[in-house]
Amino acid sequence: MIRYIPFVLYLLLIAMNEVIWRDFTALYMIAINVPAMLVVLVSIFKSELTAAWFGFLAGMVMSAGNPDGMGWQALLLATIGIAVFHVREKLNLESIYSKVLLMAGAVLLHNLLSILINDLNRILFLTWSYCLPSAIYTSLVAWLFFLFKEKRFTLENIKSVF
């Protein structure tokens, strides 16, 4: 059971983001896609089944406020989790940039498909005004996370600058 605790914490992180962080971290209405980012991270570092189930639950948690879209989001994030897992199996993910690129692609795909489901009429406008900027913003955050995780960017590095 203990091995599931991190995933419960990730789900709580998604809920916290939806309730508290989203408005604070949004830049000109462009928000970080935390659920998609976490699903991609789980897909990169964990197994295919874990990615699929985590994607499913993340979709449920993120769309709890909109029960009509719950099934779509659960299916969408589970599919993205499986897809990212298979892509990372075939790519050399040693490089941070390849991980960031994968993250950007997955988040963009999630944003696009979410809009396709919810707001088909404005898809062109929203692609440029929201999907792409949100994917870039999320990838930047993920890039910082990878830098910290691989210890390329440490507190000592920051201190040495000053």
Binding site: A15, E18, F56, M60, A64, P67, G71, L75
Partner: peptide
């Protein structure tokens, strides 16, 4: 489960939503 959530209607999605909100969202609200 996905199909259940997609086509199960409000009888399935609303209790699921209530469960998620009460267990994950409530403390943050």
């Amino acid at each position: 489960f996905s199909i259940l959530l997609l086509f199960g209607g409000k009888n399935i999605t609303e209790p699921a939503s209530r469960f998620v909100i009460s267990s994950f969202y409530y403390p943050f609200f």
